[in-house]
Simulated scan of single mutants.
Amino acid sequence: MAIHVKNASRALVAALTAIFGGAAAQQAPPPQETVHFFTYENDSRFFTDRFYTSGVQFSVKHATDTRGDFARRLTTRLCGWTGCDPATVLTSQTNVGQLMYTPRNIRVAEAQPLDRPWAGLLYYEQAYAFLSPDQRTLTTFTGQIGVTGPASLAEPAQKAFHHLLDRPQPQGWDHQLGGSLGVLVSAEKRTGRESLSFDLPAHVRFNTATYWRVTAGNIQTYAAAGVAVVIGKDLPPVSPPPPGIGNKIAGATERKASALTSCMVPWIQCTTFGSVEARAVGYNVFLDGRLFHDNDPSLERRPFLYEVVFGTRFDFPGTRTASHGPWFAQVKVTQRSPEFRSPLGVPSHKVSALTIGTEF
């Protein structure tokens, strides 16, 4: 009888383990292959309403290769020039957004030839990131197509936003940059520098990367180089530029215990980042006017400028569910040197950005 009871007890334990163990396994959220995030940029945080004054972007990022035949052929050729492996797609990303530019005084209805022209851009963008086998070099190719002029919807967007917040109505959109179809292609290579990276106390890591970027098209044409730093826990050797900075690159490392990745409290993870970039600009439609349109508003564009970025990102690992990855929020400040010359004087310009979304 004792043997039968013992066997029955073992069978009951095994059954309960199978039931509750299986239920726990089913409740474990599966890894996400698609994430979404939204970015809003504006200079009002610094009490200005001028130059690059507002931008919005909705992004969808995939942890899979979503390239079509044309994109595959193009990125394969670009990888041949930049040294990346076209088969190692880390992420595929789609962006849809709008950019808005105004002079410093938006209450003037007349043309302001000595100040930044009114302009808007409504765009669609596709980007593919390739990670090297040693996980230290990230190469990103971006293609963008957009429209300027009234079709950009910048005028109704700004007027609706100002009406909603009871701000002064912009008066000079009749003098905005004319309508055109714009295209832009960009390649960026970002490499983690082990000699400039080191460990800090409490499992914190200081990572440094250098990068270059070349952009060409009838929207903008420029070359840039910079240095970027990331401070956080469980960092990959190289991180994508914001808002792609996470506590890891998808698939690059195993998820560690929250004690190693948390920031002060277990339910939050934090990462700080910054960069300094120098840029040589050959063309900017928002300052030079459209190609072959001599009557477009234009200014004396500065051929060289710099940009400083600083930001912090907060991840909330406990918000992961079966339908989406963990939520994150990121704040970023960008300061850019004067982009044009004018008798009115042109100060540097600051823009703040808020990004909210989900991660893998």
Rank of each mutant, 00 (worst) to 15 (best):
D166Q: 13
K256G: 00
F206L: 14
Q171W: 04
D166N: 14
M264Y: 14
M264C: 13
A216S: 04
H163F: 08
P266A: 03
V229G: 08
T261G: 07
D199R: 07
G244P: 13
V238I: 07
I249T: 11
T221F: 06
K248R: 13
Q171H: 10
V265H: 14
G244H: 12
V238H: 11
Y211T: 03
R255A: 09
Y211K: 02
L165G: 02
A187W: 09
H175R: 14
A216E: 05
Q171G: 08
S195V: 04
Q158A: 11
Q169H: 11
V265N: 12
R193G: 07
T221W: 01
L164Y: 10
K256T: 10
V183W: 15
G182E: 10
S262V: 00
T210Q: 04
A259G: 15
I249F: 04
G246K: 01
P241V: 01
T261S: 15
W267P: 09
G217R: 06
Q220N: 09
S239P: 01
P201L: 06
Y211S: 01
A216I: 04
P242K: 06
L196A: 14
P240C: 03
T253L: 11
R167W: 13
G244M: 12
V230R: 12
P168F: 04
S180M: 02
D166Y: 02
H203L: 03
P242D: 07
R193Y: 11
N218S: 10
G246M: 08
A223M: 12
V185C: 11
T253H: 13
L164T: 10
Q158H: 08
G192A: 07
D174P: 03
V214G: 14
Y222K: 15
F161P: 00
H162Y: 00
Q158L: 02
R205P: 01
P266K: 05
G217W: 04
Q269G: 13
S186H: 07
A187K: 07
L260Q: 01
P168L: 00
R167G: 08
S197D: 00
W173C: 08
R167N: 15
V204N: 09
R167L: 15
D234W: 06
A228L: 03
A216N: 00
T208G: 11
A187D: 03
P242T: 10
F206A: 10
A224M: 07
D199V: 02
Q158G: 00
H163K: 14
K248L: 11
N207M: 07
P240Q: 05
S258I: 04
D234G: 09
R255S: 12
K248D: 15
A228F: 01
A259C: 09
K248N: 14
A223P: 13
V229L: 12
V183T: 14
N247W: 09
A225C: 06
A209I: 08
G172D: 03
Q169F: 05
R213Y: 05
D234Y: 02
Q158C: 06
L164G: 05
T191V: 11
T261E: 13
G179F: 10
P243T: 06
P236E: 06
V229A: 15
A252I: 05
G192Q: 10
F161L: 14
I245M: 00
D234S: 11
A252G: 12
H175S: 12
R205C: 07
S197M: 01
P240K: 01
L196Y: 15
T191L: 09
G179Y: 13
V229S: 11
D166R: 09
Q171R: 15
A259T: 11
V238P: 09
